[in-house]
């Protein structure tokens, strides 16, 4: 209530300025800024409360518990198993990203070319996983992947040798890719639906066979969507907990499981915090490396 009281006078002050946003110089822009600022304020408050504060507290704990110093980081980098798990976390996330790109690309493309009815069906198929609890979905993967599960029964039925999927990295990648697929499909779709398919026809008329027209025209134009989806999926995959915990075995543990063990089982908040900070820094470094790649693509597609 008090929030809306505070914003009302500010908004009515700004109204005369907003009447002539083009003619107004700094005054109009300042009013616009004030309003825009008010609009993002609630989100900003929530973000500070649920993100910035816990994050800062974790960072502080990592250098203050059980005593001040860098001993938690020394422990992390001095313990080989931690480094193995860190590396594995990145490897699994990379595989998940690759699987998602390969599955999502044709799916998103088909979404752009089908009729409106079929498109709604395809979008629903993408969204359904969002409406089912992650635990339930992962448990259904357990049923499918386990040694006596549906996949191995089918293989046996066809006279093929069974494959070991549950408690392997492959199983983890399959389960995570399925959960994360929507985050890949939706950004890809939004970019692809803006690509003019007549450009491909133009390439054909200039002498490009279909595969060449795809690789030289369609693929480059769709890459911004691929990058956007890949970054979202990769970063979400780095922090995955439930799926690797349920589908994985000891040889497919990811960093989040180690954090959980340190914090909840051993009550080592400092060590858990250090792991979190390492993962965060590694992610930021990776983003920084990927950023110029994306910026260049945007310039080239002429989104200006």
């Amino acid at each position: 209530m008090s929030g809306s009281d505070a914003s009302t006078p500010a908004r009515s002050d700004a109204n005369p300025d907003r009447g002539s946003p083009r003619s107004g110089g700094s005054a109009g822009r300042a009013a616009l800024f004030r309003e825009g600022w008010l609009l993002v304020l609630p989100a900003l408050v929530v973000l500070c409360a649920v993100m910035a504060y816990p994050l800062a507290s974790i960072a502080v704990r990592s250098i203050s518990q059980p005593e001040w110093g860098l001993q938690n980081y020394a422990w992390f980098f001095g313990t080989p198993v931690n480094l193995t798990v860190l590396q594995r976390t990145f490897t699994i996330s990379a595989w998940v990203t690759v699987v998602c790109v390969l599955c999502a690309y044709p799916y998103a493309y088909v979404m752009t070319v089908v009729g409106p009815t079929l498109r709604v069906v395809l979008i629903l198929c993408v969204m359904v996983p969002f409406w089912v609890s992650g635990v339930v979905r992962t448990l259904s993967w357990v049923l499918l992947l386990q040694d006596s599960g549906a996949i191995n029964s089918a293989l046996r039925g066809l006279g093929l040798p069974p494959v070991r999927l549950i408690r392997t990295q492959t199983g983890v990648v399959i389960g995570m890719a399925q959960v994360l697929l929507p985050f890949m499909i939706l950004p890809m779709y939004s970019v692809m639906k803006g690509i003019d398919l007549r450009l491909v026809q133009a390439a054909r008329s200039l002498g490009a066979r279909p595969s060449r027209a795809f690789f030289s025209v369609y693929l480059p134009l769709s890459l911004p969507g691929v990058y956007a989806g890949a970054i979202i999926v990769f970063i979400l995959a780095l922090g995955f907990y439930i799926t690797p915990a349920l589908l994985g075995g000891p040889r497919s543990t990811m960093l989040s499981t180690l954090v959980q063990t340190q914090v909840l089982s051993l009550l080592q908040w400092g060590r858990g915090g250090a792991m979190g900070v390492v993962l965060l820094v590694a992610t930021l470094v990776l983003l920084a490396l990927a950023a110029p790649l994306m910026r260049q693509r945007h310039k080239k597609t002429g989104a200006r």
Binding site: D196, R198, L199, Q201, A202, A203, S205, L206, G207, V217, P220, L221, K300, T301, G302
Partner: peptide, 15 residues
Amino acid sequence: RNIGVVFQHYALFPH
């Protein structure tokens, strides 16, 4: 077919 085509919508490759 080796035929040049010019389209109403230009169809230049934006990248």
